[in-house]
């Protein structure tokens, strides 16, 4: 059961990373990156590294806030 959840989380991470890399819209990339870091926080919790998971959750939130604040100042989508 535990391995199944871990494999599912890893698959979600791979999908999120690929879509975030190939997406034209920057906001989509930022939100998928937040989902990526949330999944990795869950994975760290399952492995028993609670400190690392805590740090990952907080830093994921902080970088999301930074990215969103910067996206409001630049062009949101790429031209091509």
């Amino acid at each position: 059961m535990m391995e199944l959840i871990q494999v599912a989380l890893l698959l979600i991470q791979v999908v999120c990373a690929v879509i975030a890399l190939t997406s034209r819209d920057l906001m989509v990339a930022v939100i998928l990156f937040a989902a990526f870091s949330f999944c990795s926080a869950l994975l760290f919790t399952m492995m028993g590294a609670v400190d690392v998971a805590f740090t990952e959750a907080i830093i994921g939130t902080a970088t999301t806030v930074f990215y969103v604040a910067v996206i409001y100042r630049v062009e949101r989508g790429s031209s091509k």
């Binding site: 609670v50 400190d51 998971a53 805590f54 740090t55 907080i58 830093i59 939130t61 902080a62 806030v65």
Partner: peptide, 21 residues
């Protein structure tokens, strides 16, 4: 328990950043 200086600093910084946003 889990926690420490780095996480507390990030939370305090996020409190200030939230006010700024």
């Amino acid at each position: 328990g889990p926690g420490g200086g780095f996480q507390a600093g990030a939370l305090l910084g996020l409190a200030v950043v939230l006010g700024r946003v």
